[in-house]
Design a binder for these strands. Structure first.
Lengths: 191, 191
DNA sequence: TTCCTTTGTAATCGAGTGTTTAATAAGTAA
DNA sequence: TTACTTATTAAACACTCGATTACAAAGGAA
């Protein structure tokens, strides 16, 4: 005998802000560790302890959630707030002290480069909220080229660390390694 | 009245070598321009002018085709065959003269970083056929770290060019830009 | 209470994926 | 020709994914 179509009652905790925030946090983490393609809405919802349909409700689509996660993880003040004469030193230290799986922009970018939609969103956001601010902070001759060099070097080091988890860029680097990166970055700013 | 189950005759050109080669070439191009995830077996087959089922027949699986395409595109002799005293200069020139969508290893790597399976294959292959040969060619102190720096810088420049198609790393670079890259790479070798 | 809006749930849809299968054409040797 | 193997095809399978839908629970206002 079939059961009647009435569902058993379910207890529900309601809290819009908590829900939206939990989704965003989970998205930041999963997009940064797995990339856009392999971080499914079901995974993100599960990680946030939330029903998958709520992602579409509060963020419209997965792509818009990605954009929100990217924007909320993007903060160039880490670069533009340091002492200009110790720029290389401080940025190099920050790189080696950041855990590879930290929910920052660069891992999101690296792991999501293979998705054309995510790439488009990333390009637009990065150009407006990273490249332009950095260029005006850099100042001086050929600021656009120097910013490109900065982003390229840092992205490259992240890519190596994330894709080739070999020793050199994993654990504690040697003194020469740290010095080289610091000096290279400093030279870009000073040029 | 239903048609009889007999199919209309189809003309078929048979040539195993040509088929396998066409698949591999198409795979190299598509993996390098779209990445592992967005280059579907149907796309590759269509680009090769071949039936999709033949990919599984001749290469086992999409992942194994990726590995074959990666391996056949991987050639470090471009680095290890240059004059050691002009290493930076020559590699920098090669970078700026290579079209961004060329079917080389770095774009494949960059665009496929988001797929965990492709990443695993890439790591294994790159470690054996790129990192090790480069380390022995480099020689000298901390060869592993210097190779890591080389790969990181080059990968970073490619990533920037492929993800942020802005001016600085697109068209013809300025003299200072070219010089900076050449000098930076040369310093890595000489250290 | 009653009514209405908001928030959350379960189920399903439709499109896309890599892969497999059964059948047909081509090639080869007897 | 005939028989047999190889190469190729069309179709379908099994699965995942993001998105949508109809509905139930929660909360507030009257």
């Amino acid at each position: 005998m079939p059961l009647p179509p009435t569902r058993p009652p379910t207890i529900r905790e309601q809290n819009v802000d908590r829900t939206k925030h939990a989704i965003l946090r989970a998205a930041q983490t999963l997009f940064a560790t797995r990339g856009y393609a392999e971080a499914g809405v079901r995974d993100i919802a599960a990680s946030a302890g939330v029903n998958p349909a709520l992602i579409a409700r509060y963020y419209g689509s997965k792509l818009e959630l990605f954009e929100a996660a990217l924007e909320s993880s993007l903060d160039v003040s880490m670069f533009t707030s340091v002492d200009r004469t110790r720029f290389g030193e401080q940025v190099a230290s920050a790189f080696f002290e950041t855990r590879p799986d930290a929910a920052s922009v660069i891992p999101m970018l690296v792991f999501s480069a293979g998705d054309s939609q995510a790439r488009q969103v990333t390009l637009r956001l990065l150009a407006r909220k990273a490249v332009q601010p950095l260029e005006s902070w850099f100042g001086g001759p050929q600021a656009d080229e120097r910013v490109a060099q900065l982003i390229a070097v840092i992205t490259g080091f992240y890519t190596y660390r994330l894709m080739l988890p070999l020793e050199p860029l994993r654990g504690d680097p040697s003194e020469t390694m740290r010095d080289w990166l610091a000096r290279t970055l400093q030279e870009i700013v000073d040029r």
